[in-house]
């Protein structure tokens, strides 16, 4: 049983991984620092661990999708991230892909179990 749970957890993680990237990019038209982004995402129902988001932001910056700047004027220095031009382009493509995935998945799922679970 616990084995099955472990596998299920893994599947969930895999499913979420890509969505976190899209979620983070989608909020970075305006500069955000890591923890403010965690809060924004949480408010909108996307639970992300800081321990996942911070490394992700660094990676996206390294890949050129984000730009960053340290703000040392506040009480504590914070690193603000913002979409780069490449990042904007990437987000556009990701969103398009996302839409098409959602449409096809809905078709698939409703096509198969629509009768029993027609409550949505």
């Amino acid at each position: 049983m616990s084995d099955a749970h472990e596998h299920i957890d893994k599947l969930m993680q895999e499913l979420r991984r890509g969505t976190i990237t899209i979620g983070a990019l989608s909020q970075l038209d305006a500069p955000q620092y890591g923890y403010s982004l965690v809060t924004i995402l949480k408010e909108k129902g996307l639970q992300v661990e800081p321990g996942t988001l911070y490394p992700l932001l660094r990676r996206l910056e390294k890949q050129g999708f984000l730009e960053s700047k340290w703000d040392t004027n506040e009480t504590r220095p914070r690193k603000y991230y913002l979409l780069s031009d490449t990042g904007k382009e990437a987000l556009g493509l990701l969103l398009k892909e996302w839409e098409s995935i959602v449409t096809s998945m809905n078709d698939l799922i409703k096509g198969e179990t629509g009768e029993e679970n027609g409550d949505d």
Binding site: Y35, R58, W70, P77
Partner: peptide, 20 residues
């Protein structure tokens, strides 16, 4: 090369999390 940057960021994060 990443240590200083990550270190600063982590301190900020931990303090933010504590504040909240």
């Amino acid at each position: 090369t990443q240590r200083k940057d990550v270190s600063d960021e982590l301190y900020g994060l931990i303090e933010d999390m504590l504040d909240e």
